[in-house]
Structure formats: structure tokens, C-alpha cells
Computed example of a mutant assay.
Amino acid sequence: MKYPIEVFAKKLVILISLLLLITIGALVYVTWIKTVNTNISEILNPFAILNKKDQQTPPKEPINIFSSSLTDKEINIALLGIDRRSKFESAYRTDTMVILSINVTKNRILLISIPRDLWVENSRVNALYIQGGWESLQSAFKEITGLEVDNYILTDFEDFAWIIDSFGGVEVAVENSFVDSQYPVDVTKTYQTVAFEQGTEVMDGQRALIFSRSRKGTNGEGSDWARMKRQHLLLKGMVGAVLQPKSIFNPMNVEQAYKMITDGRMDTSLTLSDAYYLWDMYKDKDKYTYVSLFLDSDYVFNPPMEDYGGAWVLAPIDPTYAAFHNKVKEVVNQPVPSTLQ
């Protein structure tokens, strides 16, 4: 008996459909079996789950402090304070410039302040950063001091006050009593009177900012050099304040502290590895002696304003800064005191 072609075709379609269903069912079954076996193995062996997670997320590599570039016997870092009153300001000057030179082998810290009005590279030195970036200011520091200054930390008024408050205040040894009746009030563009008494004072952020900015004080405290000296006093006080009881950095978590300081606040060329390296040195802080140097009237003078387009500037007595270079070398190469040998 012969089947009509239509009946044959219909049965062929049904047969193919059954084969497809059987194939799909088999694939689903195999997949289900694999899943069940995997789950059962993870239940029987809980470490399989942990191993699976370890394979998905590679372990975080520990920070290697020896990967830091700060491995020389001499570490030079520029501490830059800018006159920015708001984060929205894009034009500002580095009115505070302190070069922190750490001699690891001799346990000596040299603080060198550069006056903001110094004329260098056809500009006031405090304008170089905004004009040509860190490299421009770095080149000027090399010309002025003879030191290779590889890194910087830059902060404004707000962040300077914040770091002092974060320490829980800073104890400062005020050397001279003085009154400044022309201290600027930035918001109102007016002046206020501030005063400090000789002796020890624990300053909060705003008080420390006033102490470091004032330059119209009485009793010999009315100049840029006077406030440079006060800034050095503050820096020395800050070293001991890091781990005082009220400090938010006590106990110290270097990575967390680095993120807090650099995330939207201070700018720096120092890396996290550098921060670990410096913190490793902190345990020996009491072994270090401090020396302050200032580019003062022994090395600079006030030239006629007409020679500089009517601007009040400072110029080096010796354009090569040779005398100041020699002074820096003398301090750097001083023998270690016998008590530290």
C-alpha cells in the first residue's frame, strides 16, 4: 500500500520534532546534573566555595614600601601653601614654600623657606606653579637651593585648618607675644585684631591658620620672614600631634589616612607606597634634629621697583645663589652629634 506524499511528509515532520525535543531534553538534563553535582560538592566541601571566590577575585597585593622612590639618604619634599579661599578658585599663588629635606643617615631635618616675592625665571616665584605647573617651581627650587626636590604636597587655607583639627589641635611654642590689628577677614574684605602670648598654646585649625598667615604684627612679628619662622614652629608641632589621643589618625591606618588627605583635599606627587615609607620612618622621629634656614637679607635685597615694572620684589644678591647653596651644603653635611652616633 502506498502512502500519499502528504501523509509521508506529515510523519517526517513529526519524527524530526520528536528528535529535537529528545535532544533538548537531554541537554537540559545534563546541565541540571552538573549543577546538582556542583552544589552537592560545595555542600560536602565548604572550602570549595571559598576556593571558587578566590579564583574569581585575585587577592590584593600588599603595599611594598621598598617600591617607594624615597629610598635615598636624602628626601626632599616641597610643602606648598596656596592662597586659595575656595575650591572654585582657579587662580592662586604658592605664598608658603617650605622645602623639607630629610637626611636619613644623619637623622636631620632641614626646613628651608623661600620668600614669595623672590624674582626668578622672569616672575615672582609664588606665581610659577599656576603658570607652569610643578615642573616650573621644581626647577626654581633647584636653582635657588641646589637641592633636587622630587615631590610636593599642596594645601589651601581650608585643608590646612582641617588637618590641624584632625590632629585634635597642635601644641605650639609661641616665641614672641604680638598683636596684629590688620589681619584680613576674607569673607568681608575687612580687618580684625588678633593677638598671641609668648608661651605654649594648643591651637585649633583656624587659630593655627591665623598664626601662620599674620604678617602685620608688633614686636618684630610684622614681616614675611617672621611668619616663615612661625610656620616652622607649627610644622614641628604637627609632627608630635599625629598620634595624640584626639587625632582621627590614631591608631594610624596609612592607606585610609592617605585617601582622606588626598581625596578632594590636598594635592601631592607622593604615592601610597611613599606614604608607607614615610610612616615607617615616623617611629624614629625623636632621633631627628631640626634646622631652619631662610633666604633672608644675607642673600636677597629689594631692588628698585622701576627695574621690575613697578613691582615690589626680592632679587638675589648673587644671581647664582652660590652663597645660599654653600649654606645648605654646610647644614646638610654637618657631622652627626656625638649623642646620636
Rank of each mutant, 00 (worst) to 15 (best):
G217W: 09
T218P: 06
N219W: 05
G220N: 10
G220A: 11
G222S: 10
G222R: 10
S223W: 10
D224C: 12
W225S: 13
A226N: 12
M228F: 08
M228G: 10
K229Q: 14
R230Q: 04
Q231T: 06
L233G: 02
K236E: 15
G237R: 07
G237P: 02
G237M: 02
A241C: 02
Q244S: 12
P245L: 04
K246I: 00
S247A: 11
N250D: 09
P251Q: 11
P251C: 08
E255M: 02
Q256I: 04
K259R: 13
K259C: 00
M260A: 09
I261N: 01
I261M: 13
D263V: 05
D267H: 13
T268K: 08
S269L: 08
L270M: 08
T271K: 06
S273E: 15
S273Q: 15
D274M: 04
Y276C: 02
Y276H: 14
Y277D: 07
Y277G: 01
L278Q: 01
L278W: 01
W279I: 01
D280P: 05
D280C: 03
M281N: 11
Y282N: 07
K285C: 00
D286A: 12
D286T: 14
Y290M: 15
V291W: 09
S292I: 06
L293R: 12
L293V: 12
F294P: 00
D298A: 14
Y299R: 10
N302R: 12
P303S: 06
M305Y: 11
E306F: 11
D307K: 12
G310K: 02
W312D: 14
L314W: 06
L314Q: 13
P316K: 05
P316F: 06
P319T: 04
P319D: 09
A322F: 07
A323R: 14
